[in-house]
Design a protein around this nucleic acid. Structure first.
Length: 574
RNA sequence: GCGGGUGUAGCUCAAUGGUAGAGCGUCAGCCUUCCAAGCUGAAUGUUGAGAGUUCGAGUCUCUUCACCCGCUCCA
């Protein structure tokens, strides 16, 4: 538990007011009344966001996880990519984003599976089974054994195209076990058009009927319909039409029917569809990763919580390709390293957690016991809960397989370091579809987390609050102030300012301000989160030293003016 | 999507149905010798938007937009 003065005391209203006041984040189209789900970054916010993106780019891509060896002991290899926001619409069919575009979909909240509502087949268990004869007698008497009326909830459910397919699927032992079915046998023939079987779902053998579930049943009783993935009720949502992708039309005169395209809902697919290109042209070899940052768009039903859930957002994604046997090791590696990375940027303590998804029951479609973990931050609006910053998922070979099938392109990787040894002592090589570990981070969420974390109320200072940004991501890196605008102080300060700007300007803003009282200037830097202020005073005139004012401690120290740049370089870690 | 709340200057907020204001911030000048000091002055609003009631609307009514909170949701 938090010891004291933890973020629960931070007010989101105060944070948002500061974001506006200091130019971090504005509402998009504000002068027109805004637009739901979109935000603009102001001067400080834009630089903050760039600094976070750059930190990720540098540490992940350029330095390969900052030089930390992978689980195989070798350096981690990552190459960059910048794929287009608009792709061939077939990409989104293959990825499953377009599937059931106009069809109501149901989600299983527990397993995160989504399926078409009309593909949910109900298994209606009815009278105890004693003999086929007894059943036939009932049949001939015209008695309905089970009736999928609106108010009747099926005992089990299966996702299938038809009742007949559902029967076939249910003959699978694994599925039976998953759904808590002890035994199942289909009837050889349909009876009066009914699809039947004998089933033991825990209360002895009974007759069951397979039927589509009426849409109304799902509408009215979603919470009591059992999940087709776990057999347990309570995790299904009501059917909803999903239109999460933004549509657009290609060509100025194109007609919408034939030329519909979509703004990407995630950057990941751009990487998968370029896997072959990268492998063919850049001398990479598995294991390696492809990384990119970029905007993605989702037409969220309910944008909420400041920038946390926006309709336009920026992702920082890595798709790391490895041999299927190595996926577990790489998953663990990425999960832990990504957590460490956020911590190193200042998200520490109880505010940041690593939450591993419970996936024991997903074994039948998430092979190899694929893992998923979230790195989550306790935002003021989620406290005492957490909101996701980054997800690390073992996607197996799902995506490459999908794209290989839909594009009819071979996406296998030929690994000539594996396979049996040939006579000459060289491995014969192995052809396989790599598995993928995906660390996918939200840049806007990262920025928001850094802002929330940095926001530090302090009654003892004039600003009442200061932004405790890690120097590396602070939008303003340093400020140069002549104590007063006379006695030759500006003449000394200006060259120092120019020196710092030339050397550090690519990392962020260097501020120079001669106006108004020094206290006011310090206060402004507190709210902007500038970590260091260098002040030229009368002593500078005689001994060539300046005051360094530390944002977090308010401490002051004197250093030689010609050491200022090195001092700052050291603090910024460059 | 449902329910509740809030929209007045950059921020925080006033204004009985009767002239739209204050503090802070911002800007300019003076002053200044290390934490929003002081003095002088200035700019800033279709009161979220649109309709209606009224002699007259920031205020009452309706519609709409945005944001916040709670549900819902978030492949």
């Amino acid at each position: 538990m938090p010891d004291e003065a933890q973020p629960t005391t931070k007010s989101m209203d105060d944070i948002m007011a500061l974001c506006k006041r200091r130019g971090f984040i504005y509402q998009a189209s504000e002068i027109y009344g805004g637009v739901n789900g979109f935000w603009d970054y102001g001067p400080l916010g834009a630089q903050l966001k760039k600094n976070l993106r750059d930190a990720w780019w540098t540490d992940v891509v350029m330095k390969g996880c900052n030089g930390k060896p992978g689980p195989d002991g070798n350096p981690v290899s990552i190459v960059p990519l910048d794929s287009s926001i608009i792709q061939n619409p077939k990409v989104w069919e293959a990825s499953g984003h377009v599937g059931g575009f106009n069809d109501p979909m149901v989600d299983d909240k527990e397993t995160k599976q989504r399926f078409r509502a009309d593909h949910l087949i109900g298994v209606y268990v009815s009278i105890p089974f004693e003999s086929v004869e007894q059943f036939q007698v009932l049949q001939e008497a015209g008695q309905n054994i089970a009736s999928p009326e609106v108010n009747v909830v099926p005992d089990k459910t299966i996702v299938a195209n038809s009742s007949h397919e559902a029967v076939e699927l249910l003959t699978d032992r694994k599925l039976q076990k998953l759904l808590g079915i002890r035994s199942f046998q289909p009837f050889a023939n349909d009876t009066n058009g009914m699809v039947l079987g004998r089933i033991d779902a825990g209360s002895g053998e009974r007759i069951c009927e397979f039927r589509s579930i009426p849409a109304q049943t799902l509408e009215l009783h979603a919470s009591s319909v059992p999940s087709p993935f776990t057999g347990k009720a309570g995790s299904l949502t009501t059917p909803r039409a999903f239109n999460l992708m933004f549509k657009t039309v290609l060509g100025a005169t194109g007609n919408a029917e034939d030329n519909t395209a979509y703004l990407r809902p995630e950057t990941a697919q751009g990487i998968f569809i370029n896997f072959k290109n990268v492998v063919d042209t850049t001398r990479v070899s598995v294991p390696f990763g492809i990384a990119q940052t970029g905007k993605a768009f989702r037409n969220e039903v309910t944008p909420r919580n400041f920038t946390f859930r926006s309709r336009e957002f920026e992702q920082m994604e890595i798709e790391f390709f490895c041999h299927p046997d190595d996926s577990k090791g790489w998953y663990t590696f990425w999960r832990d390293w990504r957590m460490q990375w956020w911590q190193d940027l200042g998200l520490k303590g109880d505010n940041l957690i690593l939450r591993e998804h419970d996936s024991d029951e997903l074994a039948h479609y998430a092979k190899e016991g694929a893992g998923t973990a979230d790195i989550e931050y306790m935002f003021p609006f989620t406290a005492p809960g957490y909101g996701e910053l980054e997800g690390i998922a073992d996607r197996t070979n799902f995506d490459l397989k999908q794209h290989a099938e839909h594009s009819k392109t071979k996406l296998d990787y030929f690994d000539n370091t594996r396979g049996e040894l040939a006579k000459n002592g060289q491995p014969k090589g192995e052809r396989y579809l790599p598995h993928v570990i995906e660390p996918s981070a939200g840049l806007d969420r990262g920025v928001l987390a850094l802002i929330c974390e940095a926001f530090t109320p302090d009654e003892n200072r004039p600003s009442g609050v200061y932004m405790k940004f890690h120097p590396r991501i602070a939008p303003i890196k340093a400020a140069v102030f002549p104590l007063v605008k006379k006695d030759g102080m500006p003449e000394i300060a200006e060259p120092l300012y120019n020196e710092l700007r030339n050397r550090f300007g690519h990392l962020g803003t260097i501020e120079y301000d001669v106006k108004q009282s020094i206290g006011k200037r310090y206060a402004r830097m507190d709210e902007a989160g500038c970590p260091f202020c260098f002040t030229i005073d009368s002593d500078t005139l005689t001994d060539n030293t300046v005051t360094v004012r530390h944002r977090d401690t308010l401490d002051q120290e004197r250093i030689a003016i010609d050491r200022v740049a090195d001092f700052l370089a050291n603090k910024l870690g460059v």
